[in-house]
Amino acid sequence: MQRFTVTLVWVCFTLATFPAQAEELALTSTRTLAASCAACHGPNGNSLGSTPTLAALNQQYFIQRMQGFKDGSVSSTVMHHHAKGLTTEEVTAMAAYFAQQPRQTPQPLPHQSFLGAQ
């Protein structure tokens, strides 16, 4: 009986935590995918250059632009090559992710004179 209770508690616990864990994995997967945009759009979507800042961008606007790049209704030089490779779910998840990122003034780069050692 005691064994049964332990098993029951374990099953309930697993059932309760499983969706939470799956949800968390979906979140971290989106975070990893979104981090891949940093090369052009800066850390957490805060750009240091002429590429748009994605941090705190309106969610609907993000989706609209990406869909436009995808179907060709919005012209682009680079973004259509990325948008076409992403699923609608991925675009929606990234829109939500970037909307939540705070807009920050990027830190200056740690420039240093060449020391000649390498």
Binding site: A38, A39, C40, H41, G42, P43, S47, L48, G49, S50, T51, T77, V78, P106, Q107, L109, P110
Partner: peptide, 16 residues
């Protein structure tokens, strides 16, 4: 210009 932005952003992502 985008290539310049790319460089600055990837440097920032890596070095800060």
């Amino acid at each position: 210009e985008y290539a310049q932005a790319w460089a600055h952003n990837i440097w920032a992502d890596t070095l800060t």
